[in-house]
Computed example of a mutant assay.
Amino acid sequence: MQLRSDMKAIHQQYTYRPLRWRWAVYHETMYRQGDSYPPKLSTIGTKVCEYQTREEARREVYRLNGWTYREKKV
Rank of each mutant, 00 (worst) to 15 (best):
R4H: 06
Y51P: 00
W23M: 03
Y31V: 02
R54A: 07
T68P: 09
K47V: 08
V48Q: 04
V61Q: 04
A9N: 15
T43K: 12
I10E: 09
Y14G: 05
T29S: 01
R4L: 00
L3F: 01
W67V: 02
L41S: 04
R4P: 00
W21S: 00
E60C: 09
R17L: 02
T43H: 06
K72Y: 08
Q33S: 12
Y16N: 03
E50K: 04
T15A: 02
E28Y: 03
K40Y: 02
G66T: 12
P39E: 04
K47A: 10
L41W: 13
R58N: 06
R58I: 11
A57H: 05
G45P: 14
Y69I: 07
V25G: 06
V61I: 13
E60Y: 12
N65G: 15
P18S: 08
G45R: 14
R58S: 04
M1N: 03
W23C: 01
L64Q: 12
I10L: 11
Y26K: 01
V74E: 09
T15Q: 02
L41H: 11
Y62M: 05
E60F: 06
K72Q: 04
R59M: 09
E56C: 07
V74A: 11
T53P: 12
Q13G: 04
R32P: 14
L19W: 01
C49P: 06
L19N: 03
L19A: 08
Y62E: 14
E71M: 06
P18G: 00
